[in-house]
Write a protein that binds this DNA or RNA. Structure first.
Lengths: 214, 214
DNA sequence: GTCTATAAAAGGATAGAC
DNA sequence: GTCTATCCTTTTATAGAC
């Protein structure tokens, strides 16, 4: 009995989260993803991660020799989660490719509001937080931006002749990312969704004027 | 003799910088501005600031009871420096208000290139680095963004009927800020000026299409 | 792979003489 | 206002038994 049940008990009175049932390595990544997102990389200590994941130091350093290695693992999970965890939910029931672009932006809007402006883009945070990222980290940041931009670019391509043929789809997708990141930054500083909405409105207006000129 | 000369000698062999001649409080602010910009707030230790400013701990804590107070002072100096230190230099010899907007953006481009992508917008860095800024800090971040946006808005207003009357000048200025911040973030992550140029190009194209449709 | 214990350094901040 | 010395906490990381 109980052979493959989670070996850790909730006997300390703390509520048992879903994270608690994961195997150690996954549990560490899951908790680190959340804490890096909420508090930032530098402001999250290894001790924070050990406590919230109910893991011992020896186990963490068994899987991740340094804190930076843990960040690399987290960035890879963000990257691999863009399709299933970010795009799939916000694109549910939306077929129109251009509507999908704005549904994605609306997802960040929702996140800002639901978190009272504590959560924005986890990649953008790390990108500005770490002044001189080591190559391992920087490469994963770029991979995340590339995956995001690539997905939006495919929407722009699928929009076909609704966008004039001479407009660079890739550049349009990159501009959506730029506007999102800038909008998230300002909304968090102002603690007001206004600057984010303003950025999306300008981007939407740009798209509209592009179309009108086809 | 030597009554009002800087009381600190360069006898330790290190080169004497211009910062070294400032009174203590100014010297601390000057060095902290530079280090927060280069390394970020969290990654700059009080010890770093003391070493680079050749100051004793007691003096720093005499002027700034906590590290956060020092950050507040730095943010106020960034804010007050926007006109004289940022705008005045890049607008030198440029009278056309719309050209001034792009000259400002070109200033950030220059900064990224000259610093090999180590320096971007010091305000944007802090805005994303500090997950839950205390009110004192957050207010100064907003003041910086407001001062920047206000200056660009005045350019848009001065452009008069070159921008159609029904276009919101303030919204246009805010979009310039959004594009700049997003562009700087991506350029630093990619270590490539391409993403920044792409953002400015899209913004310029948007401005052009606005004008054409007046 | 997991556990406890702890090292070793860096962090922000303070005390008290001058 | 400045100086030296130092406190106390937190930090990342390691040792070595199980």
């Amino acid at each position: 009995m109980g052979t493959s049940l989670p070996r850790r008990s909730a006997g300390d009175g703390r509520p048992m989260s879903m994270e608690a049932q994961l195997p150690t390595r996954e549990r560490l990544l899951s908790v680190a993803m959340r804490l890096f997102w909420e508090k930032g990389y530098n402001s999250t200590s290894v001790a924070d991660i050990l406590r919230e994941s109910d893991t011992n130091s020896g186990s963490l350093y068994h899987y991740f020799p340094t804190k930076k290695d843990l960040l690399v693992g987290v960035l890879e999970r963000y990257r691999d989660g863009i399709e299933p965890m970010l795009l799939l939910p916000v694109w549910e029931g939306i077929e129109d490719p251009l509507e999908r672009v704005f549904a994605l932006l609306a997802g960040y809007r929702r996140l800002l509001l639901d978190s009272d402006f504590r959560l924005g883009c986890p990649i953008g945070n790390v990108a500005l937080e770490i002044a001189k990222p080591e190559p391992e980290v920087r490469e994963r940041l770029v991979q995340n931006f590339e995956a995001w931009t690539g997905a939006v670019e495919r929407c722009m391509v699928e929009a076909g002749d609704r966008i004039p043929g001479d407009v660079d789809r890739r550049a349009l997708a990159a501009f959506a990312l730029t506007a999102m990141e800038g909008g998230v930054m300002l909304a968090r500083a102002y603690q007001d969704i206004g600057p984010f909405d303003a950025a999306v409105d300008r981007f939407r207006d740009y798209m509209a004027r592009l179309g009108l000129q086809g």
